[in-house]
Design a protein around this nucleic acid. Structure first.
Length: 582
RNA sequence: GCACCGGUAGCUCAGCUGGAUAGAGCAUCAGACUACGAAUCUGAGGGUCGGAGGUUCGAAUCCUUCCCGGUGCACCA
C-alpha cells in the first residue's frame, strides 16, 4: 500500500464529508491538495496542505478550515496525533504498525517492490539513442541511451505500457558518405591501396563491411557506376552499422523493441501524406526565411522554400520542409514519423536527445501539436554533455580522424553497472562530470559503491545469520516475524523511508526523472549504514542477537526488505545489485 | 541578436512540480573498531538560493528584467 496515496484519499473523503455537512462549498478543486512527508520528521509522519490550498476558494480562514479537517482526520484509525502548524499545515502522526506493515508487503513483492498501477496500462513511446548508423556508438551517446532506458524502466514500473524505439536516420547525406567510405574499404579488400579523402569516414570498423561486400559480390561492384553500386553498398553498410550499434547497446543492457527507418517513411509516401495533411490545415506556404543572426555564413542567400507555420504553435520562426532544390529537409520525415507514432496509438511521446539538438525542440513540439490537433503530449528530454575526467584531469579528446572514445571503451573500463548508475546521478538537463578513476573508488562519495555496499552488507548479515543458526530465512518466514519488536528510532526511520519508496518511484515517473531513484537509493543506503553502526555502539541493536530469536527475525525481515528495495531501485536504473564487494 | 539549459555551503550537487528553521557528499575540525566487513558511522562549523523587482497566506521553485557560464541558431542530420 502506498500510505501517501491512501491518506490523499482519506483527506479527499474528509473534505467530501465536510462538503456534505455544508461546512465547505461543493465542487472545490482539490487537485492541488497534497499529502507529503514533512521536511522535518519531528513534525510527524504526514503533512497536508489541504487547508491552505482550499481556504481561499472556500472563503474560509486556513486555520479554521484546518481545525475542521483535523477533527475528521483524527477519527482515522491509524492516526495517533493531529496537529495544526504554521499557516495551516495539518500534520499527522501515524501508528507505527501501519509503517511496519510495509515490510511483509515488500517481502512478498521482492524486487517487485515499488510497483504501482499509476499508468493504468497507458501506452507510452520512448524514443532514445537514435544515433546515426554511420559507426560505433561513442561516449557522447551513452548518457542519452542510459537515460532513455532507465526512464522506460521507470514508466513500466508504475504501470505504463512502454515501447522503446530507435529512429534510424538512414536517408540523409551522411548515409551516402557512409556508402562511399564502405566502397573504398571494398576496393581495399580487393587489393587496392586506398587513401581516405577528407569528408569520408576513416574508421577501421568499415573494413569488415568491405570484406563482406567482396565476399558477396566479388569484383562485380568495382565495374559499376556509382549510381549502380551505391544503393547496394549503402544497404549492406547500414545493416552492418545497425548490427554494430545493437551490439554496443547490448553491453549496456539496452534493447529496443522498434527500429524505425527514416527511409521507409520516404518510400511509403508517408512524408507526402503528412505534407498534404498540413496543407489542408493551411499550415504550409512558400516563403523566404530571414538570414540567421549568429555567426555569418558566407553562402547564405535568400531562397523561396516550402515552409511550415510552426510559429503558430510557439516556435521562433517558420521551418523549412523542403530544401531549395525541392528535396525534403530532415524535419519533413520527422513530422511524418511523429504522426506515425500517434497513429500507432501513442498519446504520450517522449524523445530523448543530446544537448546539441535542443534548438530543435520547439519545431517538433509545434509539428506534433499541428499534426495531432493537440491530442498528443510530447516531452523532449535533453541530456546535457558528459565531461570526461581521469583523476580530476580533463580528458583530452583527440579530434583526429576516426579517433574517439567509444561506448565500449567506457563500459570495458568501468563496467555496465557503474556506467549506468553514474549517468543517472544528475538530472538530465545538468551537465555531468564522469571521472574514470573516481567512479571506481570505494568510498562514500561514490554513490554506486555506497549503495552496492549497503546491499552487500545486508547479504553478509544474512549469510552470518545462517551460520548463527537461524534455520528459516525464507521471505515467508521473515514476513511472519513479530515486527512490533522494531522500536528504535533508526529502525523506524528506515521503515518509513521504505514506506515512501512507491511514492518516490511514482513521482520520479511522473516527472520523467529517473535520477531521483538514484538519490532515493543513496538516502536509503545511508539510513541502513547508520543503523548498522548504531549496532556497534549499542550491541542490543545488532541485527543478530544470539539469545533472542524473535528480535533477530524481526531485524532480518527489516534488512531483507531493505535489500529488496535497493534491488528494486537498481533494477529501474538497470544495475545489478552486488551481494559481495570485491 | 535570438532560443534553450544551467547559476543553491570553499568544491560537486539534491531540493518531492508553490510549503514550515534551504539539505547531502567532499574538504575542515572533534569523536567511534578485541568487527553481523571502520570500504562505515556520530557530531560541529560553513548560505544575501547570481542581482533587482513582482505575483500570494507562503517563492530556491511561478512572472518580468538584468548579470555570468554552457549549447544551438537558413537548405546539415
Amino acid at each position: 500500500m502506498n500510505i501517501f496515496r491512501h491518506f490523499e484519499e482519506r483527506v479527499e473523503a474528509a473534505l467530501a464529508s465536510l462538503a456534505a455537512e455544508g461546512a465547505l462549498p461543493a465542487g472545490l478543486d482539490t487537485s492541488r491538495v497534497a499529502v507529503e512527508p514533512p521536511r522535518d520528521p519531528s513534525h510527524g509522519d504526514l503533512s497536508t496542505n489541504a487547508a491552505m490550498v482550499l481556504a481561499k476558494p472556500a472563503g474560509l480562514n486556513p486555520r479554521a478550515l484546518a481545525e475542521k479537517l483535523a477533527a475528521k482526520l483524527k477519527a482515522e484509525p491509524s492516526v495517533t496525533e493531529v496537529a495544526i502548524a504554521g499557516p495551516g499545515f495539518i500534520n499527522l502522526r501515524l501508528n507505527d504498525d501501519i509503517w511496519r506493515a510495509g515490510i511483509p508487503e515488500i517481502l512478498r513483492a521482492g524486487v517487485g517492490a515499488g510497483s504501482s498501477d499509476l499508468g493504468a496500462g497507458e501506452a507510452v513511446n520512448v524514443e532514445y539513442v537514435s544515433a546515426n548508423p554511420t559507426g560505433p556508438m561513442h561516449v557522447g551517446h551513452v548518457r542519452g541511451a542510459v537515460f532513455g532506458d532507465a526512464l522506460a524502466n521507470l514508466l513500466e514500473k508504475v504501470g505504463y505500457r512502454v515501447c522503446r524505439e530507435y529512429y534510424i536516420n538512414d536517408a540523409g547525406g551522411q548515409i551516402e558518405v557512409l556508402a562511399r567510405s564502405a566502397f573504398l574499404r571494398y576496393r581495399e579488400a580487393l587489393g587496392e591501396t586506398i587513401t581516405i579523402p577528407e569528408g569520408l569516414y576513416p574508421g577501421d570498423y568499415l573494413k569488415p563491411v568491405g570484406q563482406a561486400l567482396k565476399a558477396e559480390h566479388g569484383p562485380a561492384l568495382a565495374q559499376m557506376d556509382e549510381a549502380q553500386w551505391l544503393p547496394i553498398v549503402r544497404d549492406t553498410a547500414i545493416d552492418a552499422m545497425m548490427e554494430l550499434i545493437r551490439g554496443d547497446l547490448s553491453v549496456l543492457g539496452i534493447t529496443h523493441e522498434v527500429f524505425y527507418s527514416e527511409r521507409a517513411l520516404h518510400k511509403s509516401g508517408a512524408v507526402e501524406k503528412t505534407l498534404k495533411l498540413l496543407e489542408d490545415k493551411g499550415l504550409i506556404y512558400t516563403g523566404v526565411l530571414e538570414a540567421p543572426k549568429g555567426e555569418q555564413s558566407d553562402d547564405w542567400e535568400a531562397r523561396p522554400q516550402t515552409l511550415f507555420r510552426s510559429t503558430q504553435f510557439g516556435d521562433d520562426t517558420d521551418r523549412a520542409l523542403k530544401k531549395s532544390d525541392g528535396s525534403w529537409t530532415y524535419f519533413a520525415p520527422d513530422i511524418a514519423y511523429h504522426l506515425d507514432k500517434y497513429n500507432r496509438g501513442y498519446r504520450t511521446l517522449i524523445d530523448v536527445w543530446g544537448a546539441d539538438h535542443s534548438g530543435y525542440i520547439k519545431r517538433v513540439k509545434a509539428a506534433v501539436a499541428a499534426v495531432t490537433d493537440g491530442k498528443a503530449e510530447i516531452d523532449v528530454k535533453v541530456c546535457q554533455l558528459v565531461r570526461l575526467f581521469r583523476n580530476g584531469e580533463p580528458f583530452k579528446m583527440s579530434k583526429r580522424a576516426g579517433d574517439f572514445i567509444t561506448l565500449r571503451d567506457v563500459v570495458d573500463e568501468v563496467g555496465k553497472g557503474v556506467t549506468r548508475f553514474m549517468m543517472l546521478t544528475r538530472k538530465n538537463d545538468a551537465p555531468l562530470d564522469f571521472d574514470f578513476a573516481k567512479v571506481m573508488e570505494q568510498s562514500r562519495d561514490n554513490p554506486v559503491f555506497y549503495v552496492q555496499y549497503a546491499h552487500a552488507r545486508i547479504h553478509s548479515v544474512l549469510r552470518n545469520a545462517k551460520e548463527a543458526g537461524v534455520a528459516d530465512l525464507s521471505d515467508g518466514a521473515l514476513a511472519g516475524a513479530d515486527l512490533s519488536l522494531l522500536k528504535d528510532e533508526a529502525e523506524l526511520g528506515l521503515i518509513k523511508l521504505m514506506g515512501a519508496f512507491t511514492r518516490s518511484v511514482e513521482q520520479a515517473a511522473l516527472a520523467h526523472e529517473p535520477h531521483r531513484i538514484a538519490f532515493y537509493l543513496y538516502d536509503l543506503a545511508s539510513a541502513f549504514h547508520g543503523l548498522w553502526n548504531k549496532g556497534k555502539d549499542e550491541p542490543g541493536l545488532r541485527f543478530i542477537i544470539a539469545e533472542d530469536r524473535n528480535v533477530t527475525l524481526a531485524r532480518l525481515a527489516l534488512i531483507r526488505a531493505a535489500a529488496y528495495v535497493i534491488a528494486a531501485g537498481l533494477e529501474i536504473l538497470g544495475v545489478e545489485p552486488a551481494e559481495e564487494m570485491r
